[in-house]
Design a protein around this nucleic acid. Structure first.
Length: 310
DNA sequence: TGCAGTGTTGCTTC
DNA sequence: CGAAGCAACACTGC
């Protein structure tokens, strides 16, 4: 589920714990070279190159771009690039002390994410100079890990088509509106989830933002009035900020780097609330579920009606 | 038991 | 060009 707030929670946690440490080893048991491009550690040939790049480098800091984590590396004080991790559906990063066991997998042994039920799905591990580890738990094995050389940061396919960050102060209402104008005929929900329009919004935060703004997920972008667009702009920013404040959403298997759950799922108003009464004060609607652009969408039958003009 | 559904995204097809 | 469908994988819940 990692969307912007979950990736932000993980990024911040990593940044405070692994800054200035040296990477002393890298391990993986991902092995399919299919589906992902050549520059994926799932490709054994690429992994050898990857290992050569990162072992011996120092972590300068950890940042986020859309739903990607970037672990920035230096060598002899010079920036060499970063490890890009996209956690996709079920990935989450953990920090702690692990031991490599006789079954060729990793077990947490001290502090850290001892209680995380997903420790059995660890497929990528960085060993650090303080004898601790960063582990990527990834049940469905969809995650992407690759090395981005410093000079490729703005040109790599992994990052070049990503839209503005919704929580940065440069993301004004005018920026939001001009981004949406590139897809006037699009349905609003798939448009919000398009990473080239706005960075970091996924299925949960799209549904929750639209509930708060009172807009039907299939409302064509060009038919949304100025006041409703402004409501939506505010709803997106406050919902994402709430997600971060609550430590992310753990309705499914997201955990922070210590293996702990976030609490945003306790505040859901629409996502996976099918059949319940709408909780908007005075609203008598029911939460409906419908597949839209291949994703299940949840919205109120009354205060999120599809209209010819909002 | 069986199968629909799951947070993401990129490739293929139309 | 865009939109839709599906595949990558493993598990949960009805």
């Amino acid at each position: 589920m990692p969307e912007l707030p979950e990736v932000q929670t993980t990024t911040h946690g990593l940044d405070t714990h692994i800054r200035d440490l040296v990477i002393t080893d890298v391990w993986t048991d991902y092995n399919s070279k299919f589906f992902e491009g050549k520059d994926s550690i799932k490709n054994p040939t690429y992994f050898k190159k990857f290992k050569k790049e990162v072992v011996g480098s120092t972590i300068s800091h950890v940042s986020r771009r859309a739903k990607n984590i970037l672990i920035h590396l230096t060598r002899d004080g010079t920036e060499i690039g970063s490890i890009l991790v996209h956690m996709k559906m079920t990935g989450h990063m953990l920090y702690g002390k692990y031991a490599f066991n006789s079954k060729n997998s990793w077990t947490p042994i001290e502090e850290g994410p001892l209680k995380d039920p997903f420790n059995r799905f660890i497929h990528f591990v960085l060993t650090l100079s303080n004898k601790r580890h960063v582990a990527l738990s990834d049940m469905r094995k969809f995650a992407k890990v690759t090395f981005i050389p410093h000079h490729h940061h703005t040109t790599t396919n992994h990052l070049k088509d990503i839209g503005p960050e919704p929580l940065e102060k440069e993301f004004s209402f005018e920026v939001f509106r001009s981004q949406l104008r590139t897809k006037p005929q699009g349905k609003i929900k798939p448009t919000l989830m398009d990473q080239s329009i706005i960075a970091g919004i996924g299925n949960i935060y799209a549904d929750e933002s639209l509930w708060r703004a009172g807009i039907h997920p299939e409302q064509p972008v060009e038919t949304i009035s100025l006041p409703y667009l402004k409501k939506l702009y505010t709803a997106i920013r406050t919902t994402l900020m709430q997600g971060i404040d609550f430590g992310g959403d753990s309705m499914s298997d997201y955990r922070n780097i210590h293996g702990e759950r976030g609490k945003f799922q306790e505040t859901h108003r629409a996502y996976r609330k099918t059949g319940t009464l709408c909780s908007k004060p005075g609203c008598k609607g029911k939460i409906l579920r419908k597949m839209i652009a291949g994703r299940s969408s949840h919205f109120c039958s009354i205060h999120q009606k599809l209209t010819t003009r909002t």
